[in-house]
Design a binder for these strands. Structure first.
Lengths: 128, 128
DNA sequence: CCTAGTGTTATATCTTACTAATACACAATA
DNA sequence: TATTGTGTATTAGTAAGATATAACACTAGG
């Protein structure tokens, strides 16, 4: 996995797991991969994985069962809340940063549409 | 100034100055505040400011004149490029992150419109 | 020439993030 | 009950970011 060197790895792992749960690649009640396996998959240290998982456990997104593994919460409402929270965080960060560059609301929407359009074109070019 | 503790301060200062230049609060050829003054204003260490400025100088956005100060480049084209680059970076980061949450292109646009709408409403409520 | 204001560099110290290695605690099962 | 697979904790070491402090280099103006 590629990490942004400007953001702590444990934090990026946390968001990665959020994503896996939100998109249903990990379903409620499912056991997630073992910490040592995750460490290998993500090519990071066990302790770094553990730090990410600890926070997810504190937040109630994961449930730890010693000797058995870590499991996705059965609380679908909590998952939905996380999804909404993450979407809002993304929009907020982008909005604030663009406003600081004097980009207006309308321009933000326009730029986004153009970005998506361009992205689709480039995707076709690259046969992805 | 409030900093995000997940991102290096020097990097946030760099982006802050980009913003000041892009929005015209600092105009081409203008002298920016002294490093020691910036350190006070931003409540960080001189070396941290210097690190941010060094990168901006390397990139040709600022010009250093020892004994005189640091000055905004007269190269308006370079400034325009930075503005465009920053806008694209913001859109790209947000887009990638939302796609990883299974949010479709159309949904991204819809969520953004809703966010802007809600933001305006809340702004009125708070009399800002 | 001296001083004040500026950019630049250097040293030491502290904290956080990450890694490596090891050990401990618990559960399932052969 | 011994082994294997799991989560958890500890200790030590490295590196990056940030700080405090100080010194050095250059410019302008009295």
């Amino acid at each position: 996995m590629k990490f942004d060197d400007k953001i702590p790895i444990y934090y990026q792992i946390k968001n990665y797991i959020y994503g896996r749960i939100i998109t249903g690649k990990l379903v409620p009640g499912e056991k997630i991969p073992a910490v040592r396996q995750l460490a290998v998959d993500l090519t990071v240290n066990v302790n770094t994985v553990q730090r990410a998982l600890s926070e997810l456990i504190s937040e109630g997104i994961l449930e730890s069962k010693r000797g058995l593994g870590n499991f996705v919460t059965e609380d679908q409402a909590a998952i939905n809340q996380v999804r909404h929270k993450m979407i809002m965080e993304q929009l907020h960060a982008m909005y604030e940063n663009l406003h600081n560059l004097n980009v207006t609301d309308d321009e933000i929407v326009q730029y986004l549409r153009q970005y998506i359009k361009d992205r689709r074109t480039n995707k076709d070019d690259q046969h992805n």
